[in-house]
Write a protein that binds this DNA or RNA. Structure first.
Lengths: 207, 207
DNA sequence: CAGCGATTTAATCAGATGATTAAATTTTTT
DNA sequence: AAAAAATTTAATCATCTGATTAAATCGCTG
């Protein structure tokens, strides 16, 4: 699964990422990580000084994973309609591959808000992007309903992300298996794309 | 804050609810709960046989808190438009009072899916409600866009709940304080209500 | 008040956990 | 190859944690 560049440090980080994402910080023991990485538990403290330090490293990585692609898309010079569609597609793809990513991050932030300081950089870039200007221009030209870009982004993110945050609940409530959930999620995304675009791009706001 | 009906068992449950909601199951120690309740830590095991048992009791309570009002609303004989609006208002009110409720529940379910079995009853009631029939009728009469009620409920829930799941992130990204967040959330809910209603109740589906 | 059950406490146990240490092994440098 | 540095291991520590036990206290009934 991995190339020959497998250094021990990387192997520990991979194992730690897997275990942390599955069990959360509090639910993970250093011995869990060590055995998942196939190493002695003291080695973890040799490379990273503590469980907390290792976690910070992992947490940074997964936050970057969550934000990086989105930030790139947000700053691309493409049409609004296209951008919104691509933003949702991108999130969807990412969450299909890593369904626990968002709930893991949001929950760890809730449990330990100091971790926010590591994400300030990325978080602040989102609202200060080309996207924001693009929205304001479109509003000025009467192309879309007047609405702050923060609200639009929240709509885009919430409608995709919550699907995965509530995945176990949804599967239970509807009696779905993995395949069934994927089908539901795929269809839902189409609905949501339509809904958001129709809301934004309608000819005249109701006022 | 509480009436004279304060039995020790209730005091333990209150304290446990507070601590569990704040720190999660893994992050909570029995001594945390005991000291929050002002009791000896052995008392906890006298009333509830174990930390796990106590947690199950609490978890049941908060799941009921999350679902009960929504289920009642869903089965009320009121118009669809009204129902959707009231459903969102109800969730919003509940989350303003208890912002961590949903992420706590969703995360504990993720960490320990066996807990789902305690919520089967409530979860399965949602899709099998009057609401579902109401949607089908409205579709048959051409009043709303043809779309399965599961998707509608998901839209209603996601757009409110994710606001609170991502509350710390949102506050950071936009540089908001509590009051600022509340204002943002309140405004967002109005947008989302409009968006969902306009999507559902438009005269003709685009097809 | 004596006796009995319910409630509460202090003390303690056994196991888990994060971290350290000192020694062994491997890799790199000279 | 010898010396030095980096990597890895086994063993161990101190603390924390969930749970138990045995004794103390309270409240009620006869």
């Amino acid at each position: 699964m991995k190339c020959l560049t497998d250094t021990t440090e990387e192997r520990i980080k991979e194992a730690a990422k897997t275990v942390f994402l599955e069990k959360g910080f509090d639910g993970t023991t250093t011995r869990d990580i060590a055995s998942a990485a196939g190493i002695n538990s003291a080695l973890m403290n040799y490379y990273f000084r503590s469980k907390e330090k290792l976690f910070q490293s992992i947490f940074n990585d997964v936050c970057t994973l969550l934000f990086k692609g989105m930030l790139e898309l947000i700053n691309q010079p493409i049409s609004l309609r296209d951008k919104i569609s691509k933003l949702m597609d991108h999130q969807f793809q990412m969450m299909m591959q890593n369904p626990n990513l968002t709930i893991f991050i949001m929950n760890e932030l809730r449990l330990n808000p100091e971790r926010l300081y590591g994400t300030i950089g990325m978080a602040k870039q989102v609202p200060e992007s080309i996207f924001h200007q693009q929205i304001e221009d479109a509003i000025a030209q009467g192309i879309i309903t007047p609405i702050d870009s923060h609200h639009i982004l929240t709509m885009i993110i919430a409608n995709i992300q919550f699907l995965f945050v509530s995945k176990p609940m949804t599967m239970l409530a509807q009696g779905l298996d993995e395949a069934g959930f994927n089908a539901f999620a795929t269809r839902h995304m189409e609905y949501v794309k339509d809904m958001i675009c129709e809301y934004l791009f309608k000819p005249e706001p109701v006022t």
